[in-house]
């Protein structure tokens, strides 16, 4: 019985080893033929499989508990000063949504930042590989030295998280404060949030604060229909948009983006 149990496992192990060897061979060929993203993604898949076995994978993410947000813009200001972001553009910002007609009205806040998607459209379209997904922690970063400011990624991003830096003329966005999180600190916006609305952590670790919040609350992500699999989750967010004016029960909607473009795109 024991031997019979053992054989399929051995076979599976052999098949998986073979599969791994084939994947490595393809990745090697791929890296010769295509020095770009195609080869990189082949290599990435292999890395992911390996790290899952060992259990060291890190996927940074954020939970924004909108119930705790008071719309004070402390995160916006902290982010601005952390990176010296030029006037008129934002890596992180807070939108206000006002809806309804007196006396039935509501106002809600929506803190925004780069969603650090698991299927990032911006990475897919970047012609120079300047924007890329970091294997070690899943952060989407921009290599300013390689970026040519073609602005293609600004169109590809469904969250309008990217902007053209008017001083340096490269495209920039939130990077989860790589310089802070790599030293074990929380991102600047999380650090400063007065109500504790922003919670940061490792989504791959089931015991992290973010994972536990996601497991025990009704969470949502922005524009999930885009298929980007964002890693920024919201608790109790109001997704009312200006298009909802057409609804008889809403009638009046005003979205205040607090950004240079007054309208959501």
């Amino acid at each position: 019985m024991k031997e019979q149990d053992k054989t399929p496992d051995d076979r599976r192990g052999f098949v998986m080893a073979l599969g791994g060897a084939i994947a490595t061979a393809f990745a090697a060929i791929g890296s010769i033929i295509l020095p770009g993203s195609a080869a990189a993604s082949l290599l990435d898949d292999e890395d992911e499989n390996d790290s899952e076995k060992v259990g060291v994978k890190v996927q940074y993410g954020m939970v924004i508990d909108v119930r705790r947000c008071i719309g004070c813009h402390a995160c916006t200001v902290a982010c601005k000063s952390e990176f010296d972001v030029p006037p008129g553009v934002n890596r992180s910002w807070v939108e206000y949504t006002e809806k309804g007609q007196y006396p039935n009205v509501g106002r809600s806040f929506l803190p925004r930042l780069c969603n650090h998607c698991s299927e990032p459209l911006c990475v897919d379209v970047c012609p120079t590989n300047a924007t890329y997904r970091r294997e070690q922690d899943g952060i989407i970063a921009v290599d300013h030295g390689v970026c040519i400011a073609c602005k293609y990624c600004m169109h590809a991003c469904p969250y309008d998280a990217r902007f053209l830096d008017p001083v340096n003329e490269w495209v920039d966005k939130c990077d989860f404060c790589i310089h802070r999180v790599s030293k074990g600190l929380a991102p600047s916006c999380v650090n400063t949030c007065v109500g504790g609305a922003r919670i940061f952590g490792n989504l791959a670790d089931p015991d992290s604060a973010v994972s536990m919040l996601i497991a025990s609350n009704r969470v949502s992500v922005l524009r999930s229909e885009m298929g980007t699999f964002p890693n920024v989750y919201y608790i109790d967010a109001d997704f009312t948009d200006e298009v909802d004016r057409r609804r008889p029960e809403v009638r009046e909607v005003r979205v205040i983006t607090h950004r240079r473009h007054k309208e959501r795109t």
């Binding site: 379209v125 970047c126 012609p127 120079t128 073609c150 003329e169």
Partner: peptide, 24 residues
């Protein structure tokens, strides 16, 4: 239009499946 014209050379350091990379 890129602001710094010589950066366009970065397009020819890699090739990937971005339509802009293939297109260039």
């Amino acid at each position: 239009e890129l602001g710094r014209p010589f950066r366009a050379l970065n397009l020819y350091k890699v090739i990937n499946l971005s339509p802009m990379s293939l297109g260039s």
